[in-house]
Design a protein around this nucleic acid. Structure first.
Lengths: 147, 147
DNA sequence: CCTTGCCTTGACGTGGGCGTCAAGGATTAC
DNA sequence: GTAATCCTTGACGCCCACGTCAAGGCAAGG
């Protein structure tokens, strides 16, 4: 049989596949201290079902744009036995901080959007104002003494 | 005199200072083909006043979140003799593409913001619902057979 | 002459989240 | 027996816009 015993003592490849990620990613998480694996006699990492939830939590937050460090409280919370990663105050704090960052970022992007939009409009105006009958800019080298 | 002749044939340090950037950055721009410098007899790079405008254009766009490649049309436009970097169609195209990217990004961030906000609200509710008199989650290892 | 301060090229470091070999051991299928 | 597939650790690559250090050349002041 190719697969031994789902539900207990998965190996890294199985867990990665079930989580929709890669073994490299799981080892990376482990190197960051987010994931802890047991070891089989032969040195292979072993995982429990609960680890699948950890990974799903991490990836959900990653999809939201959280960086790995920010997922740590959620992971710790799950490992502490809470049914949800955001059941702990530290996780809520991360949520709130993230909301603030998002609001700030969105605001900045909106102002940039406005600014770029204005630049575009102005440039289009100037372009259309020069075409009709004005003297087309020669594009020569004679404007360096312009100022 | 420490400074030779402002206005003609600046050296890289002077240009960097006047542009509010570093010599490293200017050499980097040159390596990317965005900036071209003349050379003095001793091998030093020499710049004209017009180069200052190029750099200002680049940095303005960078501040908007344009990456270096996206500034190229503007730079080319300025070097072609146009008084503004966005006087060329290629620059306008970059503006428009950027607007689209900004709109998409802002939209994504807003939906993430909504989602995170909802998660926070839900988690806060559940937290407040458990405190009053409910059984505090034991945080033991007995929930792994939950599913 | 010597110091100071500018300039030159070259090359490695940064950060984040992995991808992608490389070299080898373990297990399984045939 | 052996090929295929898993696993292990280690280490370099990537992207981008530079920062930073190294080793040395050139110019000017005292």
């Amino acid at each position: 049989m190719g697969v031994k015993d789902y539900g207990r003592g998965m190996r890294i490849g199985e867990l990665a596949e079930r989580a929709g990620t890669t073994t490299r990613t799981l080892r990376y998480y482990e190197s960051r201290g987010l994931l802890q694996a047991g070891r089989a006699e032969n040195g292979y990492r072993t995982y429990e079902e609960s680890d699948l939830r950890l990974i799903q939590q991490i990836r959900t937050l990653q999809d939201f744009g959280f960086d790995l460090e920010e997922t740590r409280p959620f992971v710790d919370c799950l490992r502490a036995g809470h049914p949800a990663g955001d059941a702990c105050p530290a996780s809520l704090a991360v949520y709130r901080r993230k909301l603030g960052e998002l609001d700030a970022l969105i605001g900045q992007l909106q102002s940039v959007r406005t600014e770029v939009g204005a630049q575009l409009a102005r440039a289009e105006l100037e372009a259309s104002a020069e075409l009709p009958g004005g003297p087309e800019p020669r594009c020569e080298l004679n404007w360096e003494d312009d100022e």
